[in-house]
Simulated scan of single mutants.
Amino acid sequence: MSDWHLRPMAAFDLETTGTDVETDRVVTAAVIRIDPSTGGKQVRSWLADPGVEIPVEASDIHGVTTERARAEGRPAAEVLGEIAAELTELTDKEVPLVAFNAAFDLTLLDRELTRHGSPTDFGGRMRVIDPMVLDRQIDRYRKGSRRLVDVCAHYGIRLDPGDAHGCEADALAAARLAWRLGSTRPELAAMDIDDLHQAQRAWRAEQAASLEAYLRRAKDPQAVVERDWPLIPAR
């Protein structure tokens, strides 16, 4: 039995200037190294000056205004370089990365690194655990929101609304979700981490195709839902 959920993992989350992975920027980030066998954790977090205005719609969610980012944040290139180094080290050590809706965070990070002239290749080697993909796979027909805060509530994991959209709280909640899913679903826990990674790639594609079909029937005949995971290739 693999029992990947009982082994060291790292949780990752970003807060950003918006939701467009091609054009929006990193504002805050967190990487939390976790050892489930001991309960120990190490937290690294960053606040960046993204170099652009932070829309009020984004600052209302994560609490970081343009003024605060300029006053307290570090240059984006420095922050991004440190995040990339942290994730590369984890990848080299074969520590899986937990990220809720990983395709968003990893793709936006990839575009930011490319924008600042420091692309990396960790996306191809990294092994990712995405509780959003896992939850949708094992409980396909559950109605209601699949946002992080609502999925946490479903599984009895505390994430106070006031803490949601803080990257440290969200990253830790994602790790707890991964642990809970591994602990309660033996078919997931039994999978080798490489097999689980590849399975999630296929599950994400199936989920996206299903959502796209629904949207085209119900709302938008031209709807397109991205199928690639955990990194959306540059177009």
Rank of each mutant, 00 (worst) to 15 (best):
P119D: 01
L106M: 07
L108A: 00
R44Y: 11
V79P: 06
S45T: 14
S145E: 03
D139I: 01
W46G: 03
T65M: 12
Q42T: 14
E72T: 05
T65R: 10
A99S: 09
F100E: 12
P36W: 10
Y141R: 13
P75N: 00
E53N: 10
V149K: 14
D105W: 05
V52K: 09
V151P: 02
N101I: 06
A99C: 13
P55L: 10
E72Q: 12
R147K: 15
A84C: 04
A69E: 15
G51M: 05
D130R: 01
G63N: 05
L109Q: 03
A85Q: 13
R136W: 05
R140C: 11
T120Q: 08
T38I: 08
L80S: 05
G39Y: 14
W46R: 01
A58L: 09
F100L: 11
E86M: 04
E94F: 09
D130P: 02
D60N: 14
A103E: 11
D135T: 15
V56D: 15
G73L: 01
L47N: 09
L113V: 07
L134G: 02
P96S: 04
V43L: 11
K93G: 07
G123T: 10
S37M: 10
E112C: 14
P96G: 02
E82A: 00
T88D: 11
V43C: 10
Q137S: 14
A84R: 09
G144P: 06
G63W: 03
A76I: 14
E89R: 14
R136H: 08
V43N: 10
E82F: 00
D49K: 00
R44T: 15
A85H: 02
N101F: 04
A77T: 14
V56E: 15
R111I: 00
P36R: 06
H62S: 09
A85M: 03
W46S: 03
A102F: 00
E67W: 05
D49W: 04
P131V: 01
A153L: 06
T107K: 02
R142N: 08
S145V: 01
G81Q: 05
V56G: 13
H116Q: 00
R125I: 06
G156A: 02
I138Q: 06
I129Q: 01
P96Q: 04
I129K: 01
P75I: 01
D150Y: 07
Q42D: 09
G144Y: 07
D49G: 06
Q42M: 06
E112F: 08
V79Y: 09
L108M: 06
V128F: 00
E78D: 13
G73P: 08
T107A: 00
C152I: 04
A99E: 10
T88A: 03
D49N: 13
F100N: 11
E53L: 11
D35G: 10
L108Q: 05
L134E: 12
A58N: 12
G123F: 08
D139N: 13
V151Y: 01
E67R: 04
A85V: 02
C152Q: 04
V149A: 12
D139R: 14
L87P: 11
A76S: 15
P96M: 08
A99H: 03
K41L: 14
K41T: 13
G81E: 05
R127S: 02
L87E: 06
P119I: 07
A76N: 12
G156P: 11
I61F: 03
D49M: 03
A71H: 10
P55T: 10
H154E: 08
L47C: 08
G81P: 00
I34Q: 13
E67Q: 09
